[in-house]
Design a protein around this nucleic acid. Structure first.
Lengths: 335, 335
DNA sequence: TTGAAAGCGATACCAG
DNA sequence: CTGGTATCGCTTTCAA
C-alpha cells in the first residue's frame, strides 16, 4: 500500500484559487502586499487542500540571502543523570514555543561527533546549542570552526570565544557552605564529580572558599569518576568508614547526593540529624517522598531563556556577552 | 561581527575542480557514472573547500520523485519517568547510526500537537516515531491522517491501523507472578500506574491471570494517577497500613517500585526478606548500589531495532506487521 | 563517461 | 496590489 504522499504545492493552490503563485506566497508572508480578501480566499483554499509551504524549499531560497531554516541543532551527550533529561525537556519545549525545530545530535561514547558534523552543515541549521559536557574539547573546537552561531550551555569553551550560559557554580558552593555552617557543621565534606568537570570544580572552589572565610576546615574532598548515584553511594560509605567525624556533606549534584543518602540510610545514619546533606541541581526526584533532598537549584528556566536569547542574538549577528553566570537558589527540604 | 556564513556550493567545487556541476553531484552519488579518478579528484577538492551537499536542496529535488529527506520526527512526551530518557537516548543513537536526523516533537501538557503537526509537513519528514504515551487519541489520529509513515512505540492506535512495537506486557505480568509464586508469596499485591495506561493494564492482566492459574488470590490492586516514585511511595504506605499481610509486590514500572522500596525502608520493612518487590522496565537506576531492584526488563535494544526496521519498511512502502510484541526478561537482583 | 539544461517549491524583484 | 521571472543548490534526464 503505497500511500499517496504527493505534497500539495503553491501552484496547486494558485490554480485552484485562480491566482498566481506569487499571490499564494504573499498570502503566507506576514505583511506582504496583498489585499485582505485575496489573502483570505487563498488561505481558505489552501486550508481545504491541506497546503503547507515547504520549509525546505523556503529555506533554500533564503539560504544565500541570510534567512533561516528554523532548524536548531541540540548537542546533548548523556541522559543518565536525571538533571539532563529534565533540562533537555525544558529546552526543547522552549525551542518549540519559538517555532524552531530541534535536531538532536548525540556525540558517541568517546565524545566525538563524527559525521554528525556533516549533517549539521548539510541541513543548514540556523544555530546550535551545545549542552553536552561529554563532548571532547577537540570535537568542540571542530564544531566551533564551522562558524555556526552557537551557544554553550553549562560549560565553556577552552580556546574559542563562544557565548556560554552557566549557573554561577561558585555561588552554588557558597550557598551550600552557608547552609552547613548555619547548621553548625564543624567537619564538612565535599563529594565531587569528575575531576575534569568544570561544574564540580567550581562548586568545590566556592564551597571551600566560603568555609575558609568562616574559619572552618573541611574534613575531606572525595573525587569521583562520574556524577552517578553509585559514586555518591560509594563516597558516603568511604566517609562512614574513614571519616566518621564528618557532620555535613555537600555533593556536586543531586544524583551523587541521592546515592549518599541511600548509603547513610543503609547504615542507619539519620539525615539531617546525624549528618547534614545538601546536593545541587534540584532535579524533580529531589522532591520525591522519602527523599526530600535539600539542594541548590540550578535556575533552569532562566538558563533556557537566556540561552535562547543569546542564540537569537547570535543568529541575528549581534554581539553576545561571552559568559553569563546565573544565580542559583537554595532549596530547603526537611520532612 | 557577522560571521561569513556563505556556504560552499557544488558550483564552487565545480569551478575549483574544473568540472561541471553534474560531475560534482555524481561524485557524491554512490553508484553514479563517473570515473574513479574524477570522483577522487572532486571529492578531494570538495573536502578542501569544506563542501557538503545541501540536504535541503537535495531533498527538494527528490521530493516529488519519492526520495527522502533523512528527517525523522520523534514524538516524545515526557522525560520524568527514568525509563523515557533511557529509551529516548537509545532510539536517538540508533537513528543517528542509520544516518537519519531526529527532529524532536513534544506534545503540550494536554497531549496536543498544535502547530508541531504543521512543522512535520513543512519539513517533509520521511517518517515519524510516536513514543509519547501522553499524546491524546485525537492528536494521534490527526497525526496519522497525515499519512506519513509512522511507527508507534510502546502503545497502539485505537482506530487507525498503524504498526506498533511493544513489549509483551502480559508476559511481563506473568514473569512477575512467577517470581512471587516461586518465592512462596501467598498474598501478592499489584501497584498499578494510570488507570488508562495500556501498559499498566496489560501487565495487571498477565499478573492476575498467572496468579489465578496458580490458585493464588491477590491481596489487592492499587490504582494510581501516574507512574511516579511518589505514587509508588504512597501506595506502599497504603499497603503497610491497610494490607499488612501482603508479602509480595509487583509494580507497573521501576519508578513506582523504587518509590515503594523507599517507603518500605522508611518503615524498616526488609526487602526482600519481609516482602518481595519486583518492578518493570529495568531502568539503569534499578541497578544502583543500595537499590538493586529485581525487575522485568523491557527489551530496549530489540524494541529500537524492530521499530527502525518497521520504519524503514514503511518508508519503502512495504507492508508492515501491525502489532509486534517483544519478549521481556526477568532480572534478579539481590544484595 | 561527460556537460548542458530542465526542473523541485518557494520567494523576491520587477514592471505594470 | 498584482503577475511574470530569475534564483536558491542540487539531481537527473538528454545528447554528445
Amino acid at each position: 500500500m503505497n500511500k499517496n504522499r504527493i505534497a500539495v504545492t503553491a501552484s496547486d493552490v494558485a490554480r485552484s484559487a485562480q491566482v498566481s503563485r506569487s499571490a499564494v506566497s504573499r498570502a503566507f508572508t506576514p505583511g506582504a502586499s496583498i489585499s485582505r480578501e485575496r489573502r483570505h480566499h487563498i488561505l481558505q483554499v489552501a486550508n481545504q487542500l491541506g497546503y503547507r509551504p515547504n520549509a525546505l524549499a523556503r529555506s533554500l531560497v533564503n539560504s544565500k540571502k541570510g534567512r533561516h531554516s528554523g532548524l536548531v541543532a541540540v548537542v546533548m551527550g548523556e541522559f543518565d543523570n536525571p538533571f539532563q533529561p529534565y533540562f533537555f525537556a525544558q529546552l526543547t519545549q522552549a525551542l518549540q514555543a519559538e517555532g524552531r525545530v530541534p535536531m538532536l545530535i548525540m556525540p558517541d561514547q568517546n565524545g566525538q561527533l563524527d559525521d554528525a558534523l556533516d549533517r549539521l552543515i548539510a541541513y543548514q541549521v540556523d544555530a546550535a546549542i551545545i549542552a553536552a559536557g561529554s563532548l571532547s574539547p577537540e570535537a568542540t573546537e571542530a564544531f566551533l570552526a564551522l562558524h555556526i552561531p552557537t551557544v554553550l550551555l553549562g560549560r565553556e569553551a577552552r580556546q574559542t570565544p563562544v557565548p556560554a550560559i552557566l549557573t554561577d557554580n561558585r555561588a552554588v558552593g557558597r550557598l551550600a557552605a552557608d547552609y552547613l555552617i548555619q547548621q553548625g557543621c564543624q567537619a564538612p565534606a565535599y563529594i565531587a564529580g569528575r575531576k575534569d568537570g568544570q561544574a564540580s570544580q567550581e562548586r568545590q572552589q566556592g564551597f571551600l572558599a566560603a568555609l575558609h572565610t568562616a574559619g572552618i576546615t573541611p574534613a575531606v574532598v572525595l573525587q569521583n569518576t562520574d556524577y552517578s548515584h553509585d559514586a555518591g553511594f560509594a563516597s558516603a560509605q568511604t566517609l562512614l568508614q574513614y571519616h566518621p567525624g564528618v557532620d555535613g556533606v555537600f555533593c556536586a549534584c543531586d544524583a551523587l547526593a541521592m546515592g549518599a543518602l541511600a548509603a547513610f540510610r543503609l547504615a542507619s545514619i539519620a539525615v539531617p540529624d546525624s549528618v547534614r546533606l545538601i546536593g545541587c541541581d534540584n532535579v524533580p526526584q529531589a522532591e520525591s517522598a522519602g527523599v526530600q533532598l535539600t539542594t541548590i537549584a540550578q535556575p533552569v528556566e532562566a538558563l533556557v531563556a537566556t540561552a535562547l536569547q543569546a542564540l537569537n542574538q547570535s543568529i541575528r549577528g549581534e554581539v553576545v556577552e561571552l559568559s553569563q553566570r546565573l544565580a542559583p537558589a537554595f532549596v530547603l527540604r526537611e520532612t
